[in-house]
Design a protein around this nucleic acid. Structure first.
Lengths: 334, 334
DNA sequence: TATTATATGGTCACTCTTAAACAATTAGCC
DNA sequence: GGCTAATTGTTTAAGAGTGACCATATAATA
């Protein structure tokens, strides 16, 4: 990697002459500019990012802390963040908290030393359970803005991008009731997350409001048990509709129903939170609530970059964007 | 963020005294070290990463370029890389090439300006199709080592981590033939990838070697068509076994078979390349070839870090690690 | 011809950190 | 008391780059 110094030496001019020439400064003669640029091209000179970051006190890099990269939704948000950020010339440093408070703190600490200009993150499960927010406040106090998405800490003053989870399940449940379903159950593998709770509340409200059934919920804490738990649940409950809070539960519900000889969607309807990719895994395809994960990522990136580029924005002037879900009708509902 | 300068000023000592004190230098008195450390703790001083990078001419950051973060396998490899790298104090900058040669080049370019110490990447589909390798060689020529995983460019001299794809499908096919299957088909949604081709060859060899059937392959180019294509394929072919080159095809094959009233695995066996997570999406669960994605990531990270920390390693002295797959028997085979 | 204006390029300081080289203080010893 | 040696701390350079300010040469003007 060539440096200005080396170019300067070879051209017999000063370092800053080279720098100015490459930046098309008025102070440098045409001829010199040409000479400099030719040599720079020849050596494929690129300004050293690290030196630039040091000088300008900004890295054009965003720290992203996500709890689980294997979660399709979160991966998709990351995709959205990356794409939007790239558009503005920002890079992404990724930390995976593995749903652990400790790793989340570490990630924040590790990158809050000049490595990044700000953070986009989704709060870890453990953090939500323990309701810890000191590390977020500390980071913001250090001058590093945070944007939270999906699972957010409401008591932290920062930009947020959330999904209308409550409305989503409320409306989805309503739509099953409108189909004439009499026993709509709620199945969740994410009961301990804020969004999981919101989704259940939306379901509960719809059921209590307009039906004569009571809410029935199955909560699964370990992925491995899903198939078994759902099977038992079907055996012990008369169900003709399912609202699944996560994508796996939706797909498995359909397959379980089919296994019991039921016809989907004639005998039972299923709606789940799912991407196009996963909804394809069942036949018929899962009618799904799309969270527009890429949009969530893009919006988070926008909020952060806006703040980074408006140095005079007050820390107290925060916004929350709500990304509306869409209900994509597919084969698993009438 | 406090700097050495500010601490030095407040303590009335020179900047480097503070620096040395914090680094436990022998040259600084105990008392001074204590004073310095106390103030540093008070202000939660952390050395500025950017200045350090500039000084030491290394960033402790790895550039990872992957074609698709929504691919569960690739996401899992990323997870493995991140975890291993974190152990050694390395951060990960992620670029998503979206299977595009152009974006892959850009990512390499953009980060080869001092942002990272080296790269871990999986070659984009377009790059494989066009068989372009100049950009890889250029990057390595600039002194930035590359480690390739899964899909690799054989003509580039660098460390590699690959899967024994050929053996995997060869053995999987054999195992179906041993079950007594007479019509084993190969279904692939990744026909244009090097690994897709390898997997088909493994299947072909096993079929030609030990059976009196001929190879039968279904190649799907668009994900959206999977369900339809597989359905048609089942209608037009007598099949009692499926080797799926990707996870979606495996799951969909099972569901399609069930849709046709077949019993899995009594009437038909299915084996696919899949993670535990995805194999859970069908009932019965998909018997799968596990690629140990996390191990692949960890190995790639190890290879790169080893090279970064051994400055005297020759560019020509490269190694290739083969990560053996495992066949995890589950409900979709006898 | 002397002065000024203009064009062009150089010098220096600064970002933050480390480390080699150098300086100053103090204690020990004869 | 004066010298040496040990201890402790400071100065300086370097890493790559930018930008404010300064310097020089040439051309234009009075």
């Amino acid at each position: 990697m060539v440096t200005l110094k080396q170019l300067a030496k070879e051209l017999n001019v000063s370092i800053s002459t080279v720098s100015k020439a490459l930046n098309n400064s008025e102070e440098i003669g045409e001829e010199t500019i040409k000479r400099v640029k030719e040599l720079a091209d020849l050596y494929n000179y690129k300004p050293n990012k690290v030196a630039l970051s040091l000088k300008q006190n900004k890295t054009k890099t965003i720290g992203v802390i996500i709890p689980d990269i294997l979660n399709h939704f979160l991966a998709k948000v990351l995709f959205g963040i990356e794409r939007e950020a790239a558009q503005y010339g920002y890079n992404i440093i990724t930390c995976i908290s593995n749903e652990s408070l400790e790793k989340e703190k570490d990630g924040l600490q590790l990158l809050a030393n000049g490595s990044v200009d700000g953070f986009i993150l989704c709060v870890a499960q453990e953090t939500q359970v323990k309701n810890e927010i000191a590390h977020f406040k500390k980071t913001i106090g250090q001058g590093l803005p945070i944007v939270m998405f999906d699972r957010v800490a409401h008591d932290v003053l920062c930009d947020k991008v959330i999904v209308d989870d409550f409305d989503a399940t409320y409306n989805a449940t309503k739509s099953l009731l409108l189909e004439g379903r009499k026993n709509v159950a709620f199945i969740s593998g994410i009961d301990d997350l804020s969004v999981g709770k919101l989704r259940e509340r939306g379901y509960n409200k719809a059921i209590l409001e307009s039906s004569n059934q009571l809410p029935v919920a199955l909560k699964i804490s370990k992925m491995e048990d899903s198939q078994l738990k759902i099977k038992l649940f079907f055996e012990n409950n008369k169900i003709d509709g399912v609202i699944a809070a996560d994508s796996a539960s939706g797909v498995i519900s359909i397959n379980t129903a089919i296994g019991f000889g039921l016809h989907v969607p004639k005998d039972i309807s299923v709606i789940g939170f799912s991407s196009k990719y996963i909804s394809n895994h069942s036949i018929p395809r899962l009618t799904s609530i799309r969270q527009h994960a890429k949009d969530i990522g893009a919006n988070a990136a926008q909020l952060l970059i806006r703040r980074l580029q408006n140095k005079n924005m007050s820390e107290n002037d925060v916004s929350t964007r709500i990304i509306k879900t869409s209900l994509i009708k597919s084969g698993s509902t009438l």
